[in-house]
């Protein structure tokens, strides 16, 4: 990479107030280390913990559900994606993105649209209902990540889908937490 390209990345990170960015395979070890880096940089008070919890859900979502896979150093197959943390002055802004195969998009979209239709109290009630149910088919955790991200970002999380190629859609989430 030549200096002008490096400068372009630098300038973009600067104008978008990026605190941290990671693109690649998210093994559990990487999630833990990124979390450690985040805490070293920002501490761990209640505001940071709220942001941290969204960060971990986003990271574990990519790890478990991204349809772009790679084999991590420890031999496990993990999902690939991008995680961004920015500081807008008043808020922490968290974004993530990963590829999803076309055939999974309608179900995911419907889930996101349902979450967007709920206010914070509605989200909390839905969370209470879901936590005692079996996780949805194909879930590798509790199936609560997107609900938790929605609650912790005060029902303002943005879910977005853009075409990537003939087989994949790029699924992205952006969430804000006040500082």
């Amino acid at each position: 990479m030549i200096a002008t390209e490096v400068l372009r990345h630098y300038a973009q990170a600067k104008t978008t107030h990026i605190l941290m960015m990671f693109k690649g395979g998210l093994s559990q070890n990487i999630v833990v280390d990124l979390g450690g880096l985040l805490q070293k940089r920002l501490g761990f008070d209640a505001k940071v913990r709220k942001m941290f919890s969204i960060f971990v859900e986003m990271a574990q979502n990519i790890k478990n559900y991204s349809d772009e896979k790679e084999i991590s150093n420890d031999g496990a197959e993990v999902g690939v994606g991008i995680l961004l943390l920015a500081d807008t002055g008043s808020h922490y802004e968290l974004s993530c993105g990963n590829l999803v195969r076309n055939e999974k998009v309608p179900t995911l979209k419907a889930q996101c649209e349902y979450l967007k239709s709920l206010d914070k109290e509605g989200l909390k009630a839905y969370h209470e209902e879901r936590i005692d149910s079996d996780p949805p088919p194909g879930s590798k955790g509790a199936g609560l990540g997107l609900i938790d991200i929605s609650i912790k970002s005060n029902a303002n999380a943005v879910f977005d889908f853009v075409r990537y190629d003939n087989d994949y859609v790029f699924f992205s989430i952006t969430a804000h937490v006040s500082k």
Binding site: R49, F52, S53, I131, A142, L144, G145, D148
Partner: peptide, 13 residues
């Protein structure tokens, strides 16, 4: 607890 993720929230519950 200081912090837990959603999978742990289910396990704790």
């Amino acid at each position: 607890m200081t912090y837990f993720n959603t999978a742990s929230s289910k396990a704790l519950r």
